[in-house]
Nucleic acid binder design. Structure first.
Lengths: 176, 176
DNA sequence: GTCTATAAGCGGATAGAC
DNA sequence: GTCTATCCGCTTATAGAC
């Protein structure tokens, strides 16, 4: 599952073969099918892995006493990951974008949406605790800014974009 | 080229077959290869098509006398396309994200980056005309917000996100 | 549970008639 | 310049030995 999450993030779902993931996990290709009946099952596992990552991050942030500090630390974490974002984009965002282009699709696209929804809800909770007006609108702005800066940093292969936008978001959080 | 641009936007590069595009253009599959030697040539053509679209939009906006009005009209245009964005994302953004995951890649990913660079430069020019400080930082914020709201609207299949974020961006432009 | 060999099908690309 | 038929490689998935 860890190998699947990493390889799928780097190569995208469609360009990743079972053989790629098997090689990364150091198991024979055919062996994978003992644990995952189809490729989509593996993609779902990769999504779950990213979900766990997200959960660990917010759990860690929750230990901070002040909601504003939690949000600023979240932004700091994004900026810290700038090299990865500039190379491969936000794992959840790029995955959601790719899966969203599938027609019917076994619900994997909705699963990716749920991950982003989880992040949005957590951020909204922080704004709510700060008793700011329109907390869900603010959450949309913050998470949207993250997705946008990740995409631009990735498209232009420029990690500095993450730093610059991170500074702007931090100032914005302070001014709210 | 028009068929390629549309189908690739809807299905993504990897899930689009030559046969898909040929069907949309109402020509036999093999025929495509008379005009495009490889599938990547066709993708490049789709990118160029989106580039032309972008050029037409900014040329139209340039007819407005006030740079601030140009930017607000740009945002209005984004919101008007909310249904398309919620279903398939921003054409340039999703294409750039997908192509960015290719390793070496014949330079198609850089081509997608150039399109976004063009938009960024045009937006920066407007901020510069308004004599605002840090015009390229502001451009990054505006275009980033667009990419972010498109991705979220797409992932959550919710066009209202485009409307809400559009309102916020318009107010932000007015307050600058 | 682990691994090798292989089947089945799809999709990019080409040959060659018209 | 248009179209049909087809080749070939790759990838998903399975069969079956160990």
């Amino acid at each position: 599952m860890a190998a699947a999450a990493e390889v799928v993030h780097r190569q995208g779902v469609e360009r990743t073969t079972i053989a790629d993931i098997a090689r990364a996990a150091d198991v024979p290709t055919g062996n994978v099918y003992y644990y995952f009946k189809t490729k989509d099952d593996l993609v779902a596992a990769a999504l779950a892995e990213h979900g766990g990552q997200l959960e660990r991050i917010t759990a860690e942030l929750d230990r901070l006493p002040d909601p504003r500090e939690r949000l600023k630390a979240l932004v700091r974490g994004w900026v810290d990951q700038r090299e990865l974002a500039a190379r491969y984009g936000c794992p959840t965002g790029t995955l959601a974008a790719e899966l969203g282009k599938r027609t019917p699709d076994g619900g994997l696209d909705a699963e990716a949406g749920k991950l982003l929804r989880t992040l949005l809800d957590w951020v909204e909770g922080q704004f709510r605790e700060l008793e700011l007006p329109d907390p869900d609108g603010l959450a949309l702005a913050l998470v949207g800014a993250y997705q946008g800066m990740s995409l631009l940093a990735n498209a232009l292969r420029d990690p500095d974009i993450m730093t610059r936008e991170g500074n702007r978001l931090t100032a914005w959080l302070d001014a709210l």
